[in-house]
Structures are given as structure tokens and as C-alpha cells.
Amino acid sequence: MLRECYRVLRPDGLLVVAAIELTPNLKDLDLHRALELGPADVHAEAALGEMLQRSGFELVIERDVTREFRVRIRQRLDALARNEQALRREEGDDVVHEEREKRARMLKAVNQGLLRRTIVVGRAEKSLMQTSDGVT
């Protein structure tokens, strides 16, 4: 997908990506726990910045927004608790349970330093010869 982003950008166009990712350089047991606790599709191949670079981008900015992410997860869990009775009635027990478990695991992973959220900005380095305008 990052290579598609590169393709459709004009030369020097910017790509902004925000993602939850594994904390870099996790070893064995920590890596295993991070993959268990994190979102189902969290990737383990490389840090986000490195993935951008591999796709042809110059990494311009890397911003760690884990602190804000932690606050948002807690907000979500608090909102779930406050509305739990009504949610169980209207959405079903399974939905509420799944949401709570998923967010609680994610918060645990963040608090243990296993997961982070990052915003990266990459510049599409390409010559003018590499582009053509138009929609197919």
C-alpha cells in the first residue's frame, strides 16, 4: 500500500501515516506478548519510518503520539463502562465484551512499553520523468 501511495503522489508530495506499531527492538518474549496484546493486524516486519523509506520516501518527520493514544484508549474504556448497561441491551453482550477486552489488552501493551503510536511524514522523492497525470 505504501508503494501505491508513492506512485500516486507528485514529486515531493507528502505522505502522512499514523499507525499503532510494536515498540522497536522487542526481544522474544516481549515481542510475543506484544503481538498477543496488540491489534490483530499490527505488523512486526519493520518500524513505520523504515517501511516508508523502503517504499521510496524520504523520512521527514517522526512523531511519537503514544501518550495521547493512551489517553484515548482510557477515554474509550471509561465511555464503555459508563454506557455498559445500555450498550449490552442495544448492541449485545458479545460486542461489549469484545470491545472491552480488545481495548484493555491494547492499554496493557502500551503501559508495558510494547506498543506505541507514531505519526510519520515522508516525501516522495522522484524525478519529473516518473509521473504522468490522469485518472484511469
Partner: peptide, 15 residues
């Protein structure tokens, strides 16, 4: 087509 956009944003999709 190629080079159609000045910017792309892509949030919480990779994960």
C-alpha cells in the same frame, strides 16, 4: 494515474 496527488494521508489502516 501516477503523480495525481499533492498529499496522501493514511491513518490507522496499516494498524
Amino acid at each position: 494515474g501516477d503523480g495525481h496527488f499533492s498529499a496522501v494521508c493514511h491513518t490507522d489502516v496499516l494498524c
